[in-house]
Amino acid sequence: MEPLSDRELQELLSRWDAPPAPPALENRIFGRTPQASWRRRLLTASIPVPVPVAVILILAVWAVWIYLPSGSRTESPGRQRVSFADFQPVEELRPQVIRSPYESN
């Protein structure tokens, strides 16, 4: 029996076909990739901001903080100031001692 030549061997090997990947494989892989919940995504999400934009934003916030009138920074709009103008000093002190009924004298 004569040994096979390279060409004959390759010709025979080419007879054995393999099937392509089945479509279900894609669902198996991409269905199993971990999908974060919307809450988790909300907490861990990040927005890429270019450095120049970030610097401008920081400077703008700083400038607003510096140039805003100091009164408007400390006062909250709902709170009223307390004035002592209407208070008057007491004219005569009349102290009254209240004793307990169980005291002897």
Partner: peptide
Amino acid sequence: AHKDAVYR
């Protein structure tokens, strides 16, 4: 790109 090669 590579699913068929890996599967085969």
